[in-house]
């Protein structure tokens, strides 16, 4: 089934570009019954997908006593934003959000940087042992994270750090430790995706623009990396979401409550026994917003980036 892979160099841009534009425009103008049916199907599915989330938002606007007494699918006695105000104040969201950023932003950047370089080395440089590297990184990502916990904890406790990096004087209970494990653990998946992606970039493209003798670093930075932008944007979205929502590593590698990430701010809304689930829903909705924003920002990047390549001359 791979018969379509090309034996010839990439077709010159003009041909495909022109046909891409014309076909896109043709398709846009048509309004057919089939198209209406498609919208009906998609709209139904999309609303079905959104329904549980909307239900959660709806619950977050109702007092707990109301939903507890009448069920979650019932008419509201009243709707109020009180829970959102309460969450913002009680759960100290800004502080925990900041904690999360301290971990997430550097981690995503380092992961993408290291992974793209490793992927580049594996996919584009004739390296002895490139396969072994790929196996090592990819397989590492398939490991269940729980398998690492105990030894990692012992290791972190024993690695001393100066006080100005970590007040616990060790990697345990430090942001640096958290960033390190995120980088190490997510590296595999990103290397795998990027190596796969870079292998698909025709060699001719990368070389056409190069003056012979450009260094490896320069080829990586100015040629391959820009070409991998869609994959990087997709990975940035996924990694941001994963690290943002992570609770396992913070749970086992941190002990100071005021350093914990935002997932723990949500847990602060749970009592020892009783939990006001509607309040928790309000908190969870607020906490989900950054990931939704990041998705929307990067969605444009990776999908538009690719569309640009396919449709415009």
């Amino acid at each position: 089934m791979t018969a379509v892979t090309s034996t010839s160099p990439a077709t010159p841009p003009s041909t495909t570009g022109a046909s891409g534009v014309s076909s896109a425009q043709r398709r846009k103008r048509r309004i057919t019954p089939a198209r209406i049916a498609l919208h009906i199907v998609l709209m139904t599915a999309a609303l079905g997908w959104l329904a549980p989330v909307l239900l959660a938002v709806y619950a977050s606007l109702r007092p707990y006593a109301d939903t507890a007494a009448h069920g979650y699918l019932s008419w509201p006695e009243r709707l109020t934003f009180d829970y959102y105000i309460q969450v913002w104040q009680d759960a100290e969201l800004p502080r925990y959000f900041f904690n999360t950023l301290i971990v997430t932003v550097p981690a995503v950047i380092i992961i993408l940087f290291l992974a793209s370089f490793v992927a580049y080395a594996i996919a584009r440089v004739r390296l002895p042992g490139a396969r072994v590297l790929l196996v090592l990184f990819t397989a590492g990502n398939l490991l269940p994270p729980q398998v690492l916990i105990t030894p990692l904890y012992v290791l972190y406790n024993k690695l001393p750090l100066p006080w100005w990096i970590s007040d616990s004087m060790s990697l345990y209970d430090s942001y640096l430790g958290l960033i390190a494990i995120h980088v190490a653990f997510q590296l595999g998946f990103c290397v795998f995706v990027l190596a796969n992606y870079m292998r698909q970039i025709p060699t001719e493209i990368t070389e056409a623009a190069l003056v012979d003798g450009a260094g490896l670093w320069k080829r990586y930075l100015t040629v391959t990396l820009p070409l991998a932008r869609p994959a990087l944007a997709a990975l940035a979205t996924l990694e941001f979401t994963w690290i943002y929502n992570d609770f396992l590593w913070a749970l086992v590698l941190m002990s100071s409550g005021d350093k914990l990430p935002i997932t723990s701010a949500l847990n602060n809304l749970r009592g020892q026994f009783f939990t006001d689930y509607n309040l928790l829903a309000a908190g969870a909705v607020l906490v989900a917003l950054p990931t939704i924003i990041v998705f929307n920002l990067l969605q444009k990047q990776f999908i538009a980036g690719l569309t640009l390549g396919a449709n415009k001359g």
Binding site: T7, T15, T16, Q200, P202, G309
Partner: peptide, 16 residues
Amino acid sequence: SSRFPHPHPHPTQFGV
């Protein structure tokens, strides 16, 4: 197979 250019990613993207 020869009719199809390599699909991924498109050459025109290069240089952006």
